[in-house]
Design a protein around this nucleic acid. Structure first.
Lengths: 211, 211
DNA sequence: ATACCTATTGAACGACCGTTAGGCTACCGG
DNA sequence: CCGGTAGCCTAACGGTCGTTCAATAGGTAT
């Protein structure tokens, strides 16, 4: 069925990209189920039916957004890590990349984790597979840092989840015209996370009597 | 309009609570717009129309969930803070409470921040006002700790956002039958956050050559 | 028995949903 | 000048949406 249908064609990336950009903004703002294809079409000054020339379904639009975003995330993360040496520097680079991405490409990043539940089971599986690869990079860096003696982390999985939650949260509140630029935020996050992982520091705290 | 309509009555909390519990589970799983009132009614073994005896609208159900959850959060936080002494202990108590709440009452907590965008503007305003109060407690504790010399934090607003993102994220991945109990997770989060805020530690790091 | 109140029901309302079929234009290679 | 096709259109399909309304059953107090 894909051979005769000119859906999602090769050379013409401009039209479907325009659709994906508008869909990303709307899905981010109102959610997938809260956005009708008519609303999306109106935003693009198109008729509803025209969208179906470029995509087979609304679901395919959502999947395309998430799939592309995950690809860019994974690719960017690997580049960032490859450009650094040693577990500590690499983790710092990874955190920096993650935060900057979630600020600069806030809408895509936000949709990519808020609309997971709106994916078809089959599509969800494919996206989750990529997300797992992404998280494994972080877990691997933590493990390497522990073995190298630079990190002191009682629970790698928990710590990775905590770090990623914190950094992903940037996509929730970041505002483009806001007080802080993506790089500034990333810098602070890198420092906070480095400090909390640092093996060189008293961990049994000799101070607070309670909790 | 509220006087003649027996909607959301006084003594009978059991029926509307049952509705709210089922709605919370469904909104958590599929989202507000992804859940129809027919689906909710079927889950409760009721007819669709019966729901409208207890609530005026689907929107009112959503608002009730968020409003109650925010009340419980704010109340619990204030109790936790009041039971501790000093900014550091109080912040640890606050973090502990926040994490345990987001694990134990995961669905409510998740819906309360994922479905903000599905609220009516008027309802959103009311919920946001409570959320701001909640976040202000954390910002206040950070500020107090800085003044007391126990915390070293370059940016209170940013740090509060980072801490809350991290702790709120627990509601995204926590699983009841999972490896870690809510208290165990909270304990780790408390340690990580305390360590990252600690004023007594080298902050200009003399080690890593690159960021 | 009567009157009232709580809780629920079946049936329907108009609006909107995602999707499709088929036709119209404009351009492009021959 | 002509066939093909990329891109968009109008119109409509069956279905589901949130919501309403009159009717009904059971309980309790008078």
């Amino acid at each position: 069925m894909a051979t005769l249908a000119p859906v999602t064609p090769k050379g013409d990336a401009v039209a479907s990209d325009r659709i994906l950009r508008a869909a990303t903004a709307l899905f981010c703002e109102r959610g997938y189920h809260g956005t009708s294809v008519r609303t999306l079409a109106r935003e693009l000054r198109l008729e509803t039916a025209s969208l179906y020339y470029h995509f087979h379904s609304k679901q395919e639009i959502l999947f395309a957004i998430l799939d592309r975003t995950l690809d860019d995330l994974l690719d960017g993360l690997r580049r960032a890590v490859a450009a650094a040496d040693g577990a500590e520097s690499q983790l710092r680079a990874a955190v920096r990349f993650h935060v900057v991405f979630h600020a600069r490409r806030r809408q895509e990043a936000f949709v990519s984790h808020s609309e997971l539940r709106s994916l078809t089971p089959a599509n969800l599986r494919r996206v989750i597979a990529k997300r797992d690869q992404y998280e494994d990079v972080f877990r691997g860096l933590l493990t390497a840092g522990i073995r190298g003696g630079v990190f002191q982390v009682p629970d790698v999985k928990l710590t990775a989840a905590a770090i990623l939650s914190m950094c992903t949260g940037v996509a929730t509140w970041f505002s483009e015209g806001g007080r802080l630029a993506p790089e500034a935020i990333a810098g602070r996050y890198v420092e906070v996370i480095s400090k909390s992982l640092d093996a060189r520091s008293v961990d049994r705290r000799g101070k607070g009597p309670r909790s």
